[in-house]
């Protein structure tokens, strides 16, 4: 066989091989996968345990829900959060293991300046300009929140006021002669993800 006579056939074969390689590389819709996931919680926390919820980010063992206490106040630490106890004016600092977002519980005397003044201060902290009318709407539309201990308050969700950057979730409870603040400051996307746990913490507060 000469080189010239073999050439077209070889070229055809090379073309077919190239096409097969390219076709193999094309993206196809993946088939559903099945797998069994077994996760074990840390034993110390598990003693007080409850259901294990999934975490986003990395496959991991979730810290289960547990009881917390600061002074005469009690709460359920949400699954995936850890409590670092009291420090300074804080009754507790809770940390979300995934994001590192901190949630603080603080009790101040009497009205603590009132909701409006505090919201204006927090807006300043977040560098959010809000017109007077919008501020009124924000205050009036704040959803009420009630805890198992009978605390009644409002939830101020600043995630809707900012496109990106930091935001805040604050629950303010009016207690007898005191105001209880549950506050979380972090990137807005983080707070959107943690909102369910934040509200569950607030709803678990009791004496």
């Amino acid at each position: 066989m000469t080189a010239s006579s073999g050439s077209p056939a070889l070229t055809r074969r090379l073309c077919v091989a190239t096409f097969c390689l390219l076709a193999a590389g094309c993206s196809r819709q993946e088939e559903p996968r099945r797998y069994t996931e077994i996760e074990g919680s840390p034993p110390a926390a598990a003693r007080e345990g409850s259901a294990v919820a999934p975490r986003q980010g990395s496959a991991a063992v979730q810290r289960p829900e547990s009881s917390g206490q600061g002074g005469d106040l009690h709460w359920q630490t949400p699954a995936g959060w850890t409590s670092r106890g009291a420090s300074g004016m804080r009754l507790a600092t809770l940390t979300a293991a995934d994001s590192g977002a901190e949630c603080t519980i603080v009790r101040l005397g009497a009205g603590a300046g009132g909701a409006r003044a505090n919201v204006i201060r927090w807006l300043g902290q977040l560098k959010i300009d809000l017109a007077e009318a919008d501020l009124d709407t924000f205050l009036n539309d704040a959803p009420p929140i009630k805890s198992t201990g009978g605390f009644v308050g409002s939830l101020y969700d600043f995630t809707g006021l900012t496109e990106q950057g930091d935001a805040m979730l604050v629950a303010m409870f009016e207690l007898e002669g005191a105001t209880l603040f549950v506050k979380m400051l972090n990137a807005r996307d983080v707070l959107v993800g943690e909102r369910t746990r934040f509200t569950s913490l607030c709803e678990s507060l009791r004496f």
């Binding site: 996931e37 840390p42 990395s58």
Partner: peptide, 27 residues
């Protein structure tokens, strides 16, 4: 992928850094 564990915890799965999935499960 990566695995995140707390002391005393265990797992038999790792999770991707960039790819996401829609998971439906019973536990």
């Amino acid at each position: 992928s990566s695995v995140r564990l707390f002391e005393g915890g265990h797992a038999n799965v790792s999770s991707d850094y960039n790819e996401w999935e829609l998971s439906i499960w019973q536990e």
